[in-house]
Design a protein around this nucleic acid. Structure first.
Lengths: 333, 333
DNA sequence: CTGAAAGCGCTTACAG
DNA sequence: CTGAAAGCGCTTACAG
């Protein structure tokens, strides 16, 4: 079963390859109807399918973008990916998704791989440790946008949640419900903007309400350390009565701990999670969360990138776009 | 910033393109050390990155496979994808994932698109409605494997759960716990093997235990109809006391209904779900589930496909490979 | 209105 | 040990 190529179609239809190519690209300007029909028939008869690889090589464009997520295990990532995909689909772009697994070496390899595959642009949830590489992409004016996190001093547009506000909404709600000893647990010890900003929002909201910041109430550790960190926190003489989970993974670890220790929510411990997890509405009790507008954020990232890809001229607005979090009040606080 | 090509490297290193190509492909057999060094230096100096597109065109192979999932919303899909990706990664293959959204038209478009992109093979969670297309792929001896579902009479290897057993494990557990009025709810009204086999397993296990099959106790409907179907079932004079959820989406809808109607699990209704959902272990009460070996299944699918891609000769074993489900007993039954 | 020719960036069989 | 040449399957500027 030999592959049928444009040359075969041309021969079958008794025209040149050029004419077949024009036909396929719908440049009919000066093509006789008769020719069109002959080509169409030849294509159907032979079952011809164009080879996009060959076209891409010639056109130096693949109509494909790469998406590198820091960690696919976060529901946020998968939701954003869907939004990116939908938006690209509408504009006849394809996406290739890679999971860096929070590993900057993997991230670097994926960037190289995707560029070798000639993707037209990149959406990255940056691990933030490959600054030199990011810089060289900027220098080349390679189209790129950051999602979720940003890296200071880089002229790369970033699509981000208003993280301070997200933490602030949660803390303010705790306080409004009468809680004073409020803790926060989140994942990862690395230098990632999301974490830093959420912790800042947490602290600032406490201060604004005249409460003091207790460092033992704030833990950011690896996922598998979260239950221990919580245990330590709850073993303090004056343990927190309410906990903000910095993201979905942290929330799930906390819920496991609570369950294993037969604690009650919210009487033993009140809870709010950033990220509206799938089971929030039907958990017992239902979980108060801070939702991110994941769909809007993904769509925006795709639009900004596609825009950049089209106007090659160095774009102006390389700033951070912030999206609004939303507090969804349920029964866990 | 012009792209640097192999020709630039060759000129810089004072050798021919052929030699550079040999170097890159590690065919050093007869290459002098001096030449190697010169080429290496030229590559570093110019920051040369090979263009995989060009290579693919020449080699007629992209080292990329396509994965088309029926519905990305099932956790099963995302877990399988990860396993496929890991396995491919080890063997220097890349994957492009597409979500057919349970829409056979979309599936068809994605198959065309991926083939146009010259992927070397396809893993499909088939919607099962494009039989003609599947057949023509088989005729061309195009490498392909099915996941999760199969399509009768097609010489395509299929990686599947032992679905009858999955349902059977659950029903037997219900019965062993003393339940007699047992129902089943699952998604989708289409003709998909998974659904059919699970319902068969459900029925057969009832019969084997001397119970009768009540058709009103078995519902397979669209996701947004599940709560209504459950309501109808629970409004029967003799409503079921236990329900098997056919998959994760069904389970979540059932949990929503139970919560909204202030019912207790398992006293008002016992529950088992097929698919070990993320929150099963820490839900209140924890949920008894039937887990699929998603990682093994994904890895197997990738291995079978890569195997097929390598030995072009029409492979022998085009049969169905069944994987064992596992009952994880917790507190919902 | 259509065709011949060059070229995208690689690989590879062959010559020397 | 290395190079010249052909070719993968397209697109496109240009000629007629």
């Amino acid at each position: 079963m030999k592959k049928v190529t444009m040359a075969d179609v041309a021969k079958q239809a008794n025209v040149s390859k050029s004419t077949v190519s024009q036909f396929l690209n719908k440049r009919y300007d000066y093509m006789s109807d008769e020719t069109k029909i002959r080509i169409e028939e030849a294509i159907n008869k032979l079952g011809y399918k164009p080879n996009i690889i060959a076209r891409s090589l010639k056109q130096k464009s693949t109509s494909t973008i790469g998406v590198i997520v820091a960690n696919i295990l976060h529901a946020f990532s998968t939701q954003v990916i869907r939004a990116i995909e939908d938006t690209c689909h509408e504009q006849d772009f394809h996406i290739i998704v890679c999971n860096a697994d929070d590993d900057s070496e993997k991230e670097k390899r994926y960037i190289d791989m995707l560029r070798a595959k000639q993707v037209d642009g990149l959406i990255i949830f940056p691990t933030a440790e490959n600054v030199d590489m990011y810089k060289s992409l900027v220098r080349e004016e390679y189209p790129i946008v950051f999602m979720d996190r940003n890296v200071p001093e880089l002229a790369i547009p970033s699509i981000m949640l208003d993280n301070e506000k997200a933490a602030s909404l949660a803390v303010q709600h705790f306080i409004d419900q009468g809680y004073k000893r409020i803790g926060m647990i989140t994942t990862s010890v690395r230098n990632v903007t999301t974490r830093i900003e959420r912790i800042n929002g947490f602290k600032n909201t406490l201060l604004k309400n005249g409460l003091t910041i207790q460092n033992e109430y704030i833990q950011s550790v690896e996922v598998n350390q979260i239950q221990m960190a919580l245990k330590a926190m709850l073993s303090l003489e004056a343990p927190p009565q309410a906990i903000l989970a910095g993201n979905d993974m942290a929330l799930m670890e906390i819920l496991k701990y609570i369950k294993e220790n037969n604690m009650e929510i919210p009487s033993d411990l009140a809870l709010i999670g950033i990220d509206d997890v799938s089971f929030a509405s039907f958990y017992n009790p239902s979980l108060t969360t801070v939702a991110q507008p994941t769909f809007k954020m993904g769509a925006e990232a795709a639009n900004v990138l596609l825009q950049k890809i089209r106007n090659q001229e160095g774009n102006e607005n390389e700033e951070i776009k912030r999206f609004e979090p939303e507090l969804i009040i349920r029964k866990s606080c």
